[in-house]
């Protein structure tokens, strides 16, 4: 689509000096304030399909969550204060990501980079804490092989962690690209996708800390 637009604009400049074409531009522009058009809608549909992946993993975990096979139960192995800390990391990274988007809107390259870097740091803290938690669990013998409950747990939480890790790579790439090219239209589009991806991971995490950790400890 990117390659399409310039030709259109060019055509406007040369042939369409009449009043008619700009009319289209104005009316549409007012409605589509969020328009990166096909890309944004397509990325949104990707996010929805990603949500479906998590839905199946949540369903699997839900079915297996009481199959301890004589192994540890959630209340014995989950450390809620650690989870609370982790949740805070991800939540804070969500608003710093929002700040990056606002800096982008203002055309502030440095600010966008800075907020993205902060977002990345909180995301990295999240991954670090999660890996620490996993290491502790495995150290205690609560490995994915121990019971169906633990298999489901590691698959669900691990998949979310992998997504966050991908997001971190994406953030690093975007900081570099911003440094090289600035806030060109392609980078803006990528940043908008990145921000949506990051926020969706936060939404998924709400499900994880509620259904896996909090309800697990309650049970």
């Amino acid at each position: 689509m990117t390659s399409h637009s310039p030709t259109v604009e060019e055509a406007n400049g040369t042939a369409g000096a009449d009043a008619a074409p700009p009319l289209f531009y104005q009316t549409e522009a007012d409605h589509h304030d969020h328009s990166s058009g096909g890309t944004m809608l397509g990325f949104w549909i990707y996010l929805m399909s990603d949500a479906l992946i998590f839905a199946t993993l949540f369903a699997t975990y839900g079915v297996l969550s009481t199959s301890y096979a004589g192994g540890p139960a959630p209340s014995q192995i989950f450390d809620l204060s650690l989870v609370a800390l982790n949740t805070a990391m991800l939540l804070i990274s969500s608003i710093t990501c929002g700040m990056a988007m606002i800096a982008m809107e203002q055309g502030n390259v440095r600010g966008t980079q800075l907020w993205l870097a902060i977002t990345g740091l909180f995301g990295a803290a999240f991954i670090g804490i999660e890996l620490y938690e996993f290491a502790e669990l495995i150290h205690e013998g609560a490995t994915p092989m121990r019971s169906a409950f633990l298999s489901g747990f590691f698959t669900l939480v691990g998949t979310h962690g992998l997504h966050v890790f991908s997001g971190l790579i994406w953030i690093v790439v975007m900081v570099i690209q911003l440094g090289q090219r600035g806030l060109i239209i392609e980078n803006r589009r990528r940043l908008m996708c990145l921000s949506m991806f990051w926020h969706l991971l936060d939404v998924v995490w709400i499900g994880v800390f509620t259904f896996v950790y909090l309800l697990g400890v309650l049970r």
């Binding site: 689509m1 259109v8 328009s35 890309t39 392609e186 908008m192």
Partner: peptide
């Protein structure tokens, strides 16, 4: 316009 990547 519908797709126009980031007209805004």
């Amino acid at each position: 316009q519908g797709h126009g990547p980031g007209h805004g």
